[in-house]
Write a protein that binds this DNA or RNA. Sequence first.
DNA 1: AAGCAGCACTGATCCGTATTAGTAAAGAGG
DNA 2: CCTCTTTACTAATACGGATCAGTGCTGCTT
Lengths: 341, 341
Amino acid sequence: MRVRQADIARRAGVSQATVSMVINGRGDAAGIPAETQRRVLEASRSLGYVPNPVARNLRGKRTNLLGVHSFEAVFPLDRRDYYYEFLLGIEEEAESAGYDLVLFTSAGGEPDRRRRIYRDGVKRLTIADGSILLGVHSDRDELLRLVKDGYPFVHIGRRDIPGATIPFVTTDYARAVEQVVDNLLRLGHRRILYAGSEVPIEPQHDRRKGFRAALAAHKVRTGRLVQLPPDAVTADWLKRLINDGYTAVLLEGLPHARQALTAAAGVAIPDDLSVVVLDSPPSGTNEFAAWSTLRIPRTEMGRAAVRLLLSRLDQPTKAPVQLVLPSSAPAPHTIATPART
Amino acid sequence: MRVRQADIARRAGVSQATVSMVINGRGDAAGIPAETQRRVLEASRSLGYVPNPVARNLRGKRTNLLGVHSFEAVFPLDRRDYYYEFLLGIEEEAESAGYDLVLFTSAGGEPDRRRRIYRDGVKRLTIADGSILLGVHSDRDELLRLVKDGYPFVHIGRRDIPGATIPFVTTDYARAVEQVVDNLLRLGHRRILYAGSEVPIEPQHDRRKGFRAALAAHKVRTGRLVQLPPDAVTADWLKRLINDGYTAVLLEGLPHARQALTAAAGVAIPDDLSVVVLDSPPSGTNEFAAWSTLRIPRTEMGRAAVRLLLSRLDQPTKAPVQLVLPSSAPAPHTIATPART
DNA sequence: AAGCAGCACTGATCCGTATTAGTAAAGAGG
DNA sequence: CCTCTTTACTAATACGGATCAGTGCTGCTT
């Protein structure tokens, strides 16, 4: 059977209340003499006492568990580029804060493989003191309901929902892309193509906003945005771009960029065409080492999310609610002055 | 304020006990008439009741949490090749079994970055119904103590500790390597070099056992095993091997294999030298796509570990304790008949 | 010697739910 | 009319720990 405070109390010849206070470091404040405290701690150790976080939490105290809810499975390989670094940061920061992580995998099992927070109205998240939420397609209704319920969480990635302030950590995609485009324009590029994916969500909207903003600021009307499937990015397609007078192309996501990587063999990059990938290269590889890519500080976002969550737990009113981290500009590998034509 | 069963009870004009039973579908069994049940459910719905899982667990029911304890951080990039697929399998299986995962990150914070289970005698694992343990360098004393404590767990990877039966899931490294070497010998290879790492643990011991077993079975004495650091694997080193008459080399781990991948440029593979990597290629890449590698069923091991753990929870006495999964033979990419000399 | 402060604790209660033992009322059977 | 069942519930309790309002005792004043 599990060791409870009552067992320690019996062994140390004191009451359960005393044990609770000593163990929680409230012994001095309660005026328990050092000798008694020693006896209690000694008994606790020798019996191998482990506090029951569940009981603790019932009385409104912390469980020292931080939840991680993604709205889909995080480990499948096609999700790895996206989730991995977030998890890395979350793990690092949780470790140093002394929290364990609960991955809410049980919420799955829906036919569509989506993970729900409120399933049959049950919110498992409450085991944890608070949760980090992430996912490409977060469920807005659930976020809204969480806020209404007053459940402490932080979302990774900006989410704007009318009628509520969603706590989040993000990076400023719009500004990052704006700077890239601004830079290209200053170099003399005029015809710039933005190759976007077909199902955009917030981060993509932000990138596109940045694209348009930079063009507008320079009063350039020859930039163009297309939405296309990744496999449309072929060597032919690149050549056609150049023939059409484009001197720079922005690849919104890694799938498009990967296609371009092989398609680029027959094209002079960056002499005939500057290329910028608007996403981070996958961690732990050198897949896009030779290309100009954005650097989304995913690891840092993960860490920041944990820190923000913890500070919101400590000071629910005073802590900031939303946080925007800067993302650094791409290296100039595949950015060049446009060729004179 | 949160809605409790007591609130529903008041609204429906029944007792909290009745509410509990109706809500948990025990109403019919307890002989609560349909009409009353209707009233209770109606009240529950209209008040927006959400059960408190914490209180529920306090009553000694399962927490539906499965622990995952690695003896070090799992997400750092240099650990990814090792941990990722295990986690993938664990997540999949936990999801379909309706369990959440607790990553015990709080056990860190030691100066050596190792994670301890028993720290100050406290075993946080008990939050979970049971745990999966994994790690290259598991702490044997802690495993032993866990067994003695009767804590339900399954280790990923074989661990033999005198005086205890450690529950584990593994794959048969010895047999896999034995088959590889047997195959090479049948092809006519006689001088085979096994390039091993310098700090071997169980899986490496098993591989080496397989190596020796195959040689012994063929009565071949010209196989050799060396231990060396990965960066000793250079183009020169490979050439020297060939000069020394070796026709095949086995690379024990990925670090050595990676070195070989670049060093192999100046060598005719597999014509002058057959090469087999005795580990799985990293998932989600095609890094070793052209080479013969073992296929360690890591994802399946993760799944099997969860299944084994759950069956041990359900039938502590009847369920099996240890499980060995087969690993499949390497493709023949870099295995050839030795050149006549 | 009464009064009072401080010490070292303990008893009782609460948190929200599940479960068990029990009970009041209605109806059945003799 | 009395007893026995059945129906339809409810009261009480347990789970493990945190907290607060005491309580008995000692020692010091005045």
